[in-house]
Design a protein around this nucleic acid. Structure first.
Length: 729
DNA sequence: AAGGTTAATGTTTTT
DNA sequence: CATTAACCTT
């Protein structure tokens, strides 16, 4: 029964068998993190420490949750049921249904998606008379989300926090937004965590209930937790302290989403006596790949410090990491295509190859190339199932059936299909709703009863309202599947797409069918709606042998024999925008992203960069990413038609000495080597001098480092820009 | 209210 | 370039 322990190495075994007290597992890439987590879970059950329902296991993705559930089942030899195993959000939603009244919601609250969130916020900002031109709603949304990530309810926000948005009215807007959510009986994603944390803080009996319920807590991807998730965990763990967090600070790539690596450091502080186990034996990659990745990540400061060592017997026989220099992005796509074909000819499976890019738009060039070559591929990421227009529309209908007061859903579908409800009619409904303090749906009914609506508008809206009354009864009588099918049919929604002649229409109808089909697995419509917003993913086009194309973020947790890492150029990767916004912090995160990319590869990693890249309309010259220079020379092999660039760069005499050090030497050489479309800068730009930038206007240079300048722009504020984009003023 | 035009604007996005 | 939101015309 304990033969599962025999399959672990010493450090993994320690992580599994240390069951009492707080434990932090620092697990490097490919060191068997998931195995440790699932084995630990099973070990708790097998040793009789707890029943399955007494273990709380938290992941970030549904995929990870599913995987863990399957592997735990396999070890204990039966389907694992009644588990508290899921994503932070799914677990919180489940809890919040029990205690919704504490935060002014009813247990039937629905969960809002990003689109509805923004629409609602726009309305709130409009009502608060905030100029949307000057204060962009998406920026305000970001601010609110970051507050929520930090566990800050409007009441917890100090005036000092509310300084730089809409003349210190951000806190007020946030409060109004929250009030509006409550009045609609909806919660956004952030609220799930925020509300539960707030409830556990304020209601000792609720907290005590969960302390009794959970004896052990397991947390995956701990480096990606944000503050509110940390608080939530800490509250739940504070009585028994049997909490085990697994993470890797070197793979923290979501700080821009509110994740705080500092949580790892905080862990030791808040759980004194916490044991720390390091997993450093990598069973995934060959030695050159590990050494290259380690050499790269060593350039980051402030790491907890782990050294990956090869754990595979055959690790030493690996090929070096290829670094290929190419003339332009077309040649890069051609190179990747050719390599893929060659590998396939040698008997390699396409499913074992991946192209990992920094930004989503980069996949297109490779898609086009692979189509020409007739190589099957799949793009991972992009629109999720529930983000599709037709699914969101259908769900809006269903939400109103469950929740007649859901104004956002009503607003979304009242004129879909067209019922002649335009801006004017909607405004009238809003006014009536606000005046009488009733939901939009009731306001519409009232306007019809009062004879305020006329003609086609009146009859079509009336029919819709009668429909909702009917469908609501039907739900009790005939269940969700029949109701959903009827709603889509009788509302004219299916009809609308059947009449649509666009090429996407058939696919949309197919998705609607899939939605109804998926409903069969659920007892209640409310349960299904939760599933759709919290869990439902794309069917990943998994069938067949295909090359995977995805972003580096999307590749976390995956592995492939061969990994292509194109576009390693300054500006693109590391991404200039990230650098401009968050400086060194962003650079280190970009570097971690590069580390994640390299460590996805089992046997082969092919890094490439192009000297010229078409961005939007025109061609732009790029220089190789600094990350390439940071790869240890011994582990890489440089080839490619643009190898010359490097030779030139390395052998060119250092022209500029003394006075203005570190100025764009690399840029200049590469530009000299190709056509002089943009004249190379002849002189360094001294600190303190006045410059002009096409986009930001005039400013004063405050610092210079390599080819980038810190400039205090007169109007645009402090920015970091490439020196070739400014001119001496 | 609907359809067609122009102008603005381009990272990453587990839930 | 290519997508989308805001705008203007019928």
């Amino acid at each position: 029964m304990t033969d599962y322990l025999a399959r672990l190495n010493a450090e993994q075994r320690e992580a599994v068998e240390t069951l009492d007290g707080p434990l932090l597992v620092l697990a490097g890439a490919g060191t068997g993190k998931t195995r440790v987590l699932t084995t630990r879970f099973a070990h708790i059950l097998v040793t009789g420490r707890a029943w399955p329902g007494q273990v709380l296991a938290v992941t970030f993705t549904n995929k990870a949750a599913r995987e863990m559930r399957e592997r735990v089942s396999a070890i204990i030899g039966r389907p694992a049921e009644g588990l508290w195993l899921g994503t932070f959000h799914a677990l919180c939603a489940r809890m919040l249904r029990r205690h919704a009244e504490y935060v002014g919601l009813s247990p039937s609250f629905t969960i809002l998606d990003a689109d509805d969130q923004l629409r609602l916020l726009k309305q709130v900002m409009e009502a608060e008379r905030i100029d949307a031109k000057r204060w962009a709603p998406p920026a305000m949304m970001g601010l609110i989300q970051r507050w929520k990530d930090r566990g800050l309810t409007p009441a917890r926000i100090t005036p000092a926090e509310d300084t730089d948005f809409a003349n210190r009215r951000a806190r007020h807007v946030y409060a109004a937004y929250q009030a509006r959510l409550a009045s609609l009986n909806v919660a956004d994603f952030g609220d799930l965590l925020l509300h539960m944390t707030e409830i556990m803080r304020a209601q000792p009996d609720v907290l005590a209930q969960y302390h009794r319920a959970f004896r052990y807590i397991l947390v995956d991807e701990y480096q990606d937790t944000n503050l509110v998730q940390y608080l939530w965990l800490r509250l739940l763990a504070q009585s028994h302290r049997n909490i085990c967090c697994v993470g890797d600070d070197d793979q923290s790539i979501y700080s821009w989403r509110g994740a705080e690596v500092e949580n790892i450091l905080r862990f030791e502080k808040d759980f004194p006596g916490a044991k720390i186990v390091r997993l450093e034996a990598n069973y995934r990659s060959t030695e050159p790949i590990l050494a290259a990745a380690s050499g790269l990540i060593a350039h980051n400061e402030g790491r907890l410090g782990k050294t990956l060592r090869p754990g595979r017997n055959d690790a030493a026989n690996g090929e070096k990491v290829s670094v290929i220099a190419l003339w332009d992005s077309d040649e890069e796509a051609r190179m990747v295509g050719e390599r893929i074909e060659a590998l396939r000819r040698d008997g390699n499976s396409l499913a074992e190859m991946a192209v990992l890019v920094r930004a989503g738009f980069q996949t297109r060039a490779f898609e086009e190339r692979l189509i020409v070559l007739g190589v099957p591929y799949r793009v991972i990421g992009g629109l999720r199932f529930y983000e599709r227009q037709e699914i969101r529309d259908a769900i809006a209908y269903l939400r109103i059936v469950v929740q007649p007061a859901d104004d956002l859903a009503f607003e979304r579908i009242v004129n879909v299909p067209r019922r002649g409800v335009g801006e004017a009619a909607l405004r009238t409904m809003h006014e009536t709703a606000r005046a009488d303090g009733i939901p939009l749906l009731d306001a519409a009914a009232k306007l019809i009863a009062d004879g305020a609506l006329k003609g086609k508008l009146k009859s079509s809206v009336d029919e819709l309202l009668r429909g909702f009354a009917r469908w609501r009864q039907m739900l009790d009588r005939d269940g969700p599947v029949v109701t959903a099918a009827t709603v889509l049919d009788e509302s004219g929604y299916t009809d609308m797409w059947q009449k649509d002649k666009s090429p996407e229409a058939p696919g949309r109808l197919e998705n609607l069918k899939e939605l109804v089909r998926a409903l069969a697995d659920f007892e209640t419509l409310a349960g299904f709606l939760d599933h759709v917003s919290l869990v439902m993913e794309n069917e990943e086009n998994a069938e067949g042998d295909r090359v995977s194309l995805m972003t580096l973020h999307g590749a976390k947790g995956l592995e492939f024999d061969t990994v292509f890492l194109p576009g390693w150029e300054e500006g693109l990767f590391p991404n200039q925008r990230a650098l401009d916004e968050s400086g060194l912090k962003a650079l280190e995160e970009e570097r971690r992203l590069a580390y994640v990319g390299l460590t996805r590869a089992r046997r082969r990693a092919i890094v490439s960069h192009a000297a010229n890249r078409r961005i939007y309309a025109n061609w732009q010259t790029s220089i190789p990413s600094r990350f390439i220079d940071e790869l240890p020379d011994a582990e890489i092999e440089r080839t490619g038609s643009a190898t010359l660039a490097r030779e030139v760069r390395l052998t060119a005499p250092t022209v500029f000495t003394g006075q203005f050090p570190l100025v764009a030497r690399r840029t200049r050489v590469v530009e000299a080597w190709e056509q002089p479309s943009r004249p190379a800068r002849q002189e360094a730009i001294p600190v303190g001098s006045r410059v002009f930038h096409q986009k930001f206007g005039y400013g004063t240079v405050t610092a210079a480092e390599d080819d980038r300048l810190d400039v205090a722009f007169d109007r645009a504020g402090d920015k970091r820009v490439l020196d070739r984009f400014v001119e001496p003023a």
